[in-house]
Write a protein that binds this DNA or RNA. Structure first.
Lengths: 337, 337
DNA sequence: TGTTAGCACTCTATTATGGCGAGTGCTAAT
DNA sequence: ATTAGCACTCGCCATAATAGAGTGCTAACA
């Protein structure tokens, strides 16, 4: 991918973000004062398509970005210093209008986020009744499968099946089970994040073959438990042309009603604590979200892990959204109420 | 309205409820084995239309019920003994699957209601932090207008403007203000219902000209405060043909996101405690709900006033819905967890 | 060798057109 | 009072025609 291709790809994505229409070679040249003829652009576009960054809705239409294209774009702007929200004045006005206790009132914060971004906002935070892990046990069922049992402090039991990699012995499983049980007993669910699991992993002396699967399972299966979900601005998504037909809207809302699923999506990101976690369309693994993207930030406030998310169309204005959500995190981290 | 007209109206409404298509004279005769010719039915239909119970989407289409038609229908079946939910077995199974603590977990109850009715379910209950009235004051601004101030126990102040009926003197206003302030101080918002207000009204000795307005204001403006709203099953509405176009869906959801407004709608019904409160389309006073109806039941459980609502299309299956919600209330009132 | 102009072609979206069918209102007969 | 008959209305749907945007390819150009 040479520099010119990158430039063109960016231009196409930016155009598509604002217009939501397939971008043609001619209009691209016009809008961006590129010193090339449409024909040249067409050649480059054909290349980019072959490389998987673009696609054509049909022959003789312009190009639209593929998920891979968005991914490339996002990765390349992620390093940029992110701007404060454009309408910072408005945001601060909203914050002060909402009172000083935004962080205590997730609904209000969610409303603020939705209204600033014009997308759907999501907030996950530990529920008031703090759940901790009582007991963990991995029980081999056969040579190739096992069940992982987790007992929580409210007495509820969760169980999930596991497949065992070849060559892992029952004795090793037992060792792992004991180790994990030993270390995670008493841990609050909200503290069960990738950092903790990572440090456990480096500490564990036994067979590592199974441990990743287990941890993956923890992150996905337990992430949601003990978390409260708040969302706002669902209607914002309905403005987007990708949701012109009601069928898609229905699927979207049907998924949004599954709190558990959404929570998993929010909390299961890996790179959380460092920076943002951005999931593009298919990366979310939810049929009805294929045309959406999710930007997630996590931070800790008064020992509570708060997760903020913005769900918009895959066509979302990434720079703005990233800037805003980084700003928000900064705001709260630096003592902003 | 003679008996035959009533019969025909009922038949039309029932057909329309199931088919969602304008009902023609011929198909009506067929489906209901009526001993009249289509022509006769047509005459009756024309009458019913003239009386305002039916309307025609356009010339040469069948008839559909008007809000007035629904109202008539609902009033006439409201007296009928309401059947237990058809799929009682399924309901009880769901209840037991959800555990015994339904009334502690409004989200689960909401899910149950949505899944049984296939409409949108709403639940309002007092929020954990119980708010009470600290102070009420009516301040005349001019001869024709005043402001009513209400201070709540969390320190927040609500103010609403009022217009003063002609001939009410400032002194009378003062008397009323003092009376209300005196009687409502310390009253929890959740207890501020029509029964209480009604009894206050009979007790008040002064000029009654203003009191209705004030009480109306209380019910509408304060009803929402201190109540928590839970809803589920929004997607169910999207199945209905009235929400085929996205514009309507957007308006609908936009309104649904205004918790305060919905709470008012739920809690402001007058006949609450006796039986059900049913609002049909325009009666709700919300543009985006003109094609919907709302069935509301209220009951008290462990001294907490719980309000249950089902929001469906105006075309909703009233008998079923009424039966279900009555059954639910009965279930909880008779000690069902 | 990379770039560009030109051109034929493809495909969608939009508009116009012409039945089809369900349903009505009216009139005249029962 | 009821009904059969009939001309008429109107939305719905499929088909056809048109316009427009954009492409890929080829040949010429710097």
């Amino acid at each position: 991918m040479d520099k010119r291709k990158r430039l063109i790809l960016h231009a196409i994505i930016q155009d598509y973000i604002t217009s939501a229409e397939p971008v043609g070679s001619r209009s691209l040249v016009k809008r961006h004062q590129i010193d090339l003829s449409p024909a040249t652009i067409r050649n480059e576009m054909a290349d980019l398509e072959e490389m998987g960054y673009l696609k054509q809705p049909h022959t003789s239409a312009g190009r639209i970005p593929s998920p891979k294209g968005y991914r490339f774009y996002v990765n390349s702007i992620l390093g940029d210093p992110s701007p404060a929200p454009e309408d910072l004045a408005r945001v601060e006005e909203l914050i002060s209008a909402a009172g000083i206790s935004l962080s205590n009132n997730p609904r209000q914060l969610a409303r603020l986020m939705a209204s600033v971004t014009n997308y759907l906002s999501l907030i996950a935070e530990p529920s008031d009744t703090i759940q901790e892990i009582r007991h963990i046990n991995i029980i081999p069922l056969s040579a190739a499968s096992a069940i992982c049992l987790v007992v929580l402090s409210d007495g509820s039991v969760r169980h999930h099946s596991l497949s065992i990699p070849e060559g892992v012995t029952p004795r090793e499983i037992k060792a792992l089970s004991d180790f994990i049980d030993n270390r995670l007993q008493g841990v609050q669910l909200q503290h069960l994040d990738s950092r903790l699991l990572h440090s456990l992993k480096t500490e564990f002396a036994g067979n590592l073959r199974l441990i990743d699967d287990i941890f993956f399972l923890f992150q996905h299966a337990l992430a949601a438990a003990g978390q409260e979900l708040v969302m706002d601005g669902a209607t914002n998504l309905l403005k987007e042309p990708e949701f012109k037909n009601v069928e898609k809207v229905r699927e979207l809302f049907r998924t949004l009603e599954q709190d558990e699923q959404i929570l998993k999506l929010l909390v299961s990101g890996s790179s959380h604590l460092e920076d943002l976690d951005i999931k593009i369309g298919p990366e979310m693994g939810l049929e009805s979200f294929t045309d959406c993207s999710l930007v997630v930030a996590t931070f800790t406030l008064r020992d509570r892990k708060i997760t903020l998310g913005i769900l918009g169309p895959a066509r979302m204005h990434y720079a703005k959204t990233i800037g805003f959500i980084r700003w928000l995190r900064e705001y709260f981290s630096s003592g902003g109420s």
